[in-house]
């Protein structure tokens, strides 16, 4: 990343920035930097996408029916297996 100091500052605040918990002043400063620094813009965009992809793929994973049944059996909750 070419603008060393600003890029480093952005990196340190990156998580707070993508989580939307950064103060307004620093947020605006980062947005100004991103507008001028293509590498940082790509890092921000692909980082957001990385988080999104993991969230998307995991949200669909439910405990399988047979696994749930064995869990209830192990917990001596057989009478609750039928929902």
């Amino acid at each position: 990343m070419p603008e060393k100091l600003n890029c480093q500052t952005l990196l340190a605040s990156l998580s707070d920035y993508v989580d939307g918990v950064l103060g307004d002043a620093l947020c605006q400063e980062i947005e100004r930097h991103i507008a001028a620094c293509d590498n940082c813009r790509v890092v921000v965009d692909t980082l957001k996408k990385t988080i999104y992809l993991y969230h998307e793929t995991a949200a669909t994973t439910e405990v399988p029916i047979d696994v749930r049944a064995r869990l209830f059996h192990r917990l001596d909750l057989d009478d609750f297996i039928q929902k």
Binding site: A58, T61, E62, R68, L71, F72, L77, F80
Partner: peptide, 22 residues
């Protein structure tokens, strides 16, 4: 209370399974 515990298991089993799988 077994009924309440069964409710707890059903509410959280998927999240625990997902975590362990990952």
């Amino acid at each position: 209370d077994r009924t309440e515990f069964a409710r707890l298991v059903d509410a959280h089993a998927s999240q625990i399974y997902r975590l362990a799988l990952k």
